[in-house]
Design a protein around this nucleic acid. Sequence first.
DNA 1: CGTCCAAGTTGATGCAAGTCAAAGGACCAC
DNA 2: GTGGTCCTTTGACTTGCATCAACTTGGACG
Lengths: 251, 251
Amino acid sequence: MAQAIRFRQASSPLKASCHQCSLSNLCLPLAIPDNDLDRLEDIVQQGRIYNRGEHIFDQSTPFRSCFAVKSGSIKTSIISEGGEEQVTGFFMPGELVGLDSMSGESYASTAKALERTSVCEFPINKLEELTGKLPELQHHMYQLMGQEIQNSHQLAMLLSKNTAEERIASLLLSLSSRFQRRRMSGTNFSLPMARNDIANFLGLAVETVSRVFTRFQNQGIIRARGREVELLDVEALQLVTREFSRQGFQQ
Amino acid sequence: MAQAIRFRQASSPLKASCHQCSLSNLCLPLAIPDNDLDRLEDIVQQGRIYNRGEHIFDQSTPFRSCFAVKSGSIKTSIISEGGEEQVTGFFMPGELVGLDSMSGESYASTAKALERTSVCEFPINKLEELTGKLPELQHHMYQLMGQEIQNSHQLAMLLSKNTAEERIASLLLSLSSRFQRRRMSGTNFSLPMARNDIANFLGLAVETVSRVFTRFQNQGIIRARGREVELLDVEALQLVTREFSRQGFQQ
DNA sequence: CGTCCAAGTTGATGCAAGTCAAAGGACCAC
DNA sequence: GTGGTCCTTTGACTTGCATCAACTTGGACG
């Protein structure tokens, strides 16, 4: 057992190759000129593989690293003193997890693999050091964090202003476009998360999520069997998300 | 008119003195060793004074600068295509506004003075350049942005899980502790924002906010006349915010 | 000092979504 | 196979808060 741990520690700082990674146009390398890419590779560690349900980190873990999803997907959530969970995001390959934790000693949230998932690990002290030397990378980090704030603000807007149907339509469209950016079908995909996670993320009850799914299905907007989803009428979905705003104007 | 504008531009890069600023223990200087403080002063611009209701920036303004509140207070909000507003934050002296905009060409939100307010302006290109040279400052920026993400996640949790009473109690306690950190009374203060802003921020109707205020007042927890608020029983307020979480455990 | 308009309060009513309950699936272990 | 567990769906009922409407307060201003 002690040996196993030792072995893990010793083998953990395995160098990852950003040069060969297919995600280099989505992930951090995107911000770095080719000739500096080695310097990022020098600090990246090949993370291990997590099975569905395994924690990458939780709120009691000391904050050491940010993680880029390599394959699979991750959900992050915060858990209140009382044990209440709020899902704060879903992360797909190429996306960076842990940015919200940059302000403290421990992680600010909990990250859990939604399926078999592999990650790359960026030790934060080394990453900060590097961003101090590569202005483009620093700029990119600011951009990513700014984007993260915006996402969260959008979520707040969704939660406080929109109906169940609007929230779910928004999520489906968001997932769709993110799948598409990863060269996967934007109309035919498999949800990485359970209904429960969707419900929690969107501030709804599971039953409500389920009902809206069947309602959309009956309207011929989507087709859903379990986690398999097919968007049959994207425009209709977009219309649902905007319906609310429209009311402000006409009529 | 043209002259006035010229005059403004010429006089605008007025140097602010961080050395003498009373907020140096809250604001950016907090992260900088004394002997480097000059370098921050070199890039800060003394911003102008805004009257209640004036915009510091909005979503159509090209993103150039972050602003530190010097006196007064600011609310930020995002406005959807349909014109729906979601208040995303209230900012007090020493706090930095505009971090959510670090990812785009234009500001991601709109900032409005809630009262007569003065600010310091940090041009973003110069700030980035400086954080590249001062690791402590870079670290602090990451911390601030991480904190901003966390705040927003907390808001999402509040919006999706908590009752009207819990939301308002949370806001009052948050304001209280922030006033206190600024050496003002934490139990006797004047709300900088209107009921409307509170309602919007917390995802409630104005009427609900009003009702909860009077309910708290009848219970002897607070005393409120207009914007003047007195917290009579802070523990009771804390209890309200935790009531919800408790239910998860006992009984 | 009265006028006016925005901001705040209070009451009555309706509805979207939560809660409770129970019945299917799907998947896994044995 | 068969039993168990977890996830999802569906139905019946309940409720917190929004909405609508009317009234009050307060501050700005001529």
